[in-house]
């Protein structure tokens, strides 16, 4: 058959139309399978299996009373044990910072339990301690600031995840589906608070979940449980009489880096403007 390029030939057009349709259908099918897969994974959180827990009925919140914290680091220890976090000085779901204002100095000196000096004092990366470096200094003011995931209302980490492996639950906790995470670490970059770390063994991102497996069973997070001075307060913001609701109501609370627009759900009392 004589046919010139640029002229339409009916049978070819039919074939093209068919191919086009097949492409669209296949694409839609793949896309929906993917979406369904994702929905399924999000709903089947192992921590929730068989608990009868309804995540639409709670709104969890966390408080830190820095005036109470004594820097004993039992919270860090409890968290590592409870959640199987790598026992080294570079992976933490929660940590404690020390702010020390020395006489004659404008800016505070800041360190955490992961500081080499503190590791030397404890003798091991798996034991946590603040050293006594300020014993002979003239300290004007000092306090400890426990840190953990802020479970933001507008979490930048969730925004940047390319596959939707990390998500915010209706009760306000940001979780990671470790079986779906591709390990790109974009979320680690996006968190302004340094709350995320990369699990080098499983090659996926790790973060504080406020011990989701415990709170959905009516228990407190491990760090709250371990704190000997009640510096960590936890509860349901939907319940006006819960410890966290009272903490927020009875104190002038603040959040970290409010200019980031993340709306954190960890509320602090007794910290200075220098707290990072």
């Amino acid at each position: 058959m004589k046919w010139k390029i640029g002229e339409h030939r009916p049978d070819r057009r039919r074939l093209l139309r068919l191919l086009g349709r097949a492409f669209v259908y296949a694409g839609t099918a793949l896309f929906s399978v993917g979406l369904m897969g994702r929905r399924g994974l999000a709903a089947a959180i192992p921590a929730l299996a068989g608990t009868g827990y309804d995540w639409t009925k709670h709104r969890w919140g966390f408080g830190i009373d820095a005036t109470r914290c004594i820097g004993c680091l039992r919270c860090v220890e409890a968290c590592k044990t409870e959640n199987g976090v790598s026992r080294d000085a570079h992976h933490f779901r929660t940590w404690v910072e020390r702010y020390v204002y020395l006489k004659g100095e404008k800016a505070p000196r800041i360190d955490s339990q992961a500081d080499p000096g503190n590791i030397a004092a404890s003798g091991s990366e798996t034991e946590y301690r603040f050293d006594n470096r300020y014993r002979d200094a003239k300290v004007e003011k000092a306090f400890f600031v426990p840190k953990l995931c802020n479970q933001c209302e507008h979490p930048p980490c969730v925004q940047v995840c390319p596959v939707g492996a990390t998500f915010r639950t209706p009760d306000g906790v940001v979780l990671i589906d470790h079986d779906y995470c591709i390990g790109c670490q974009y979320c680690v970059q996006a968190c302004p608070y340094g709350a995320r770390s990369f699990n080098p063994k499983h090659e996926v991102t790790d973060k504080c979940t406020w011990c989701y497996h415990r709170i959905t069973r009516g228990l407190k997070p491990a760090c709250v449980e371990a704190c000997p001075v009640d510096a960590r307060i936890f509860g349901d913001q939907n319940d006006p009489e819960s410890p966290i609701s009272r903490f927020i109501r009875e104190n002038r609370v603040q959040v970290l880096q409010p200019a980031m627009g993340t709306s954190p759900n960890v509320f602090y009392v007794g910290i200075e403007k220098e707290v990072v």
């Binding site: 596959v163 939707g164 790109c184």
Partner: peptide
């Protein structure tokens, strides 16, 4: 990537805000 074998997830379930 920590899990390159899951890289197709980006095409199958793209999280569009990323």
């Amino acid at each position: 990537l920590g899990h390159p074998e899951r890289s197709m997830n980006v095409l199958l379930t793209p999280h569009l805000t990323s």
